[in-house]
Design a protein around this nucleic acid. Structure first.
Length: 567
RNA sequence: CGGGGUAUAGCGCAGUCUGGUAGCGCGUCAGCCUUGGGCGCUGAAAGUCGGGGGUUCGAAUCCCUCUGCCCCGACCA
């Protein structure tokens, strides 16, 4: 591509409403332009990257045996009523009406449509297993879209759905997709990690998220020091500490007129935060529950929701807290509540002695508290987030940040059952199919790749998804016929070799501007053609990630470059 | 949905308090100059000051109203 034939839309000034680096760089490089909140136009430059990601995803899905199809983006309400998700999906579902007042939504996902398709198409176990996928624009009306295409409302997604006669077959395909995803992210040239994820209320035996590692990631991932296990922080198990020490202190209530948080109480006492216990009051299905974690820990809502009797719990209101405990929030604890309540202690809390809690009297806390002696033994469960460096089932936990770009999921029979998707087995008996679903955020990958690969000058694309592999920059082509001819010849050869080449043939553009644009848009390799170089019989090569130039002779240049790009 | 901002040239912003001929930087266009890190100089084009209503001799500026967008929070495969 000659730059004069292309639409380069770089800007010098950083857009003021961009709050993550990928969004800034995508706007400055002219890859995207915002049309409305969370809705973007992909420019020719940005689209080249998006298409490269899409192509790799498609090739690997095909290789894994999945079949591409394309479903409608507009879906009728009736289908969503069958799974009761018309109401349950919530505000993210963009609902629209046609001229006859028929109700539709813009598809945020396609379980209903594919299951409807499958129940019509699939009749015999002989047609199974089968895996259908599409790469398509989705819309989720996010409450607060932000971070550019990282969390846009309209986005490009690959979604696949597999159908099976039994669970074992579903699990085999799940593994097949897991392996395909590993190949995809490896080919994309990204540093990533597959992590065990919470499978939520749907249950099922498995779910993994694929995260691109980046400090700016929205999700915390926990992984063990031996590298063999990684989990969403929501799932990582906090193991029980050693046995409880014997009580040494007497129970003592003390005044904390203005100290409501564990931090404030610990500061007042001059004691470590880890000697305090935080009490979180919630209302579960079976009544009032007090969840206890150590002062320096955080309650994990997903773990808490899994406890028997809690289910769809919510935080207790101030009125409920006063009614059950007799004190206002900030001074509550498990000691002598006003009414009978359930106390659930985190494993760590259960192993504490001589600890500090709210006294259930406004303005007071109590120290020297001990299980068994001062209050009954609690129910014990793992209800907190793990923290950096603490013991894990194997080794110790480390915490990293990641951007979720893929998710594989064993759906089981949830949708097939709700929608009556059945096939006849070898005995002629109708059986509800098992399903798996597998998503990849294609447009999000573009942003995630930038979060992971950039410097002060701009983007540093991995070769596999760079909009162009190499930039040819002729310096002074306006006045040097030799430079112009050499650049043209090089451009032809590189293009003929199958590389994506961008030649900066703009008139009167100074070298500094050429370099700045090439670095901003992140072309991974550049070759400078100049009178100075030609006189020495050399071309100047620079890797986007390198600080220094290399002088390459004309001989073997194309091969040398190919080796760098194709690996 | 709650709270807080903001809307002025293609982009980024000042001007609004205290009403009186629409400004700056970047970009764009023309010319000169320059040619290894977003050069320099000269000139030019470009704005129903988010929409509607009101006050006033006169409104970007004051009042009312609507809308978009941004930030914080709650929420979220």
């Amino acid at each position: 591509m000659r730059l004069t034939q292309f639409h380069l839309a770089t800007v010098k000034e950083t857009p003021s409403d961009a709050d993550v680096i990928s969004q800034k760089l995508m706007l400055r490089a002219g890859m995207i332009r915002k049309l409305a909140a969370g809705i973007y136009t992909w420019t020719p430059l940005g689209l080249r990257v998006l298409r490269k990601v899409e192509t790799i995803v498609r090739e690997e899905m095909n290789r894994a045996g999945a079949l591409e199809l394309l479903m409608p983006s507009i879906q009728p309400r009736e289908l969503w009523e069958e799974t009761e998700r018309w109401a349950k999906f919530g505000g993210q579902l963009l609902k629209i009406k046609d001229r006859k007042d028929g109700e539709f939504c813009y598809g945020p996902t396609h379980e209903e449509v594919i299951t409807d398709f499958a129940r019509g198409e699939l009749r015999s176990y002989k047609q199974l297993p089968i895996n259908f996928y599409q790469i398509q624009t989705k819309f989720r009306d996010e409450i607060r879209p932000r971070f550019g295409v990282m969390r846009a409302r309209e986005f490009l997604m690959k979604d696949a759905y597999s159908f099976h006669l039994d669970e074992a077959c579903m699990q085999r395909e799940y593994q097949n997709m897991y392996d395909a995803y590993t190949r995809i992210f490896t080919r994309l040239g990204l540093r990533f990690r597959a992590v065990a994820a919470d499978s939520g209320a749907i249950g099922g035996t498995g779910s993994h998220e694929f995260h691109v590692l980046a400090d700016s990631g929205e999700d915390a991932i926990a992984f063990t020091s031996d590298g063999n296990y990684a989990a969403n922080v929501e799932l990582a198990e906090a193991i029980a500490p050693g046995p409880r020490a014997a009580a040494t202190q007497a129970l003592e209530q003390f005044a904390t007129p203005t100290q409501r948080t564990c931090e404030e109480v610990a500061a007042l006492l001059g004691a470590p935060l880890a000697t305090t216990v935080k009490s979180v009051a919630v209302m579960g299905e079976q009544g009032f529950v007090l969840a206890l974690v150590r002062g320096d820990h955080q309650v994990n809502e997903i773990k808490l929701a899994k406890i028997e009797g809690l289910g769809e719990y919510r935080l207790a209101t101030e009125t409920e807290i006063i009614e059950h405990l007799g004190a206002v929030p900030g001074f509550i604890g498990p000691l002598s509540p006003k009414k009978s309540i359930t106390v659930i202690a985190d494993r760590t809390v259960a192993a504490m002695s001589d600890f500090v809690v709210g006294a259930n009297a406004t303005g007071f806390h109590t120290k020297g508290v001990n299980w068994g002696r001062d209050l009954p033994e609690p129910l014990v469960a793992d209800i907190r987030n793990v923290v950096e460096g603490e013991p894990a089932p194997m080794g110790t936990w480390s915490i990293a940040r990641g951007i979720e770009v893929g998710h594989v999921f064993q759906l089981g029979q949830k949708y097939a059952k709700a929608m009556g998707a059945e096939v006849l087995d070898e005995n002629g008996k109708a059986r509800t199919m098992f399903m798996g679903c597998y998503g990849i955020g294609v447009s999000r990958i573009v942003a995630a790749a930038i979060e992971q690969n950039h410097d002060a000058n701009g983007i540093q694309w991995p070769n596999a998804i760079a909009p162009f592999h190499v930039a040819v920059l002729p310096l002074g082509a306006d006045r040097s016929e030799a430079v112009r001819a050499a650049a043209e010849e090089l451009y032809s050869q590189l293009t003929a070799a199958g590389l994506d080449v961008l030649m900066d043939d703009r008139k009167g553009v100074r070298p500094g501007a050429m370099f700045a644009d090439q670095e901003l848009i992140g072309i991974p390799h550049r070759i400078v053609v100049s009178d100075r170089g030609l006189a020495a019989g050399q071309f100047e090569y620079r890797d986007r990630r390198a600080a220094e130039n290399e002088n390459w002779s004309r001989e073997g240049l194309v091969e040398r470059l190919m080796a760098k790009i194709r690996g």
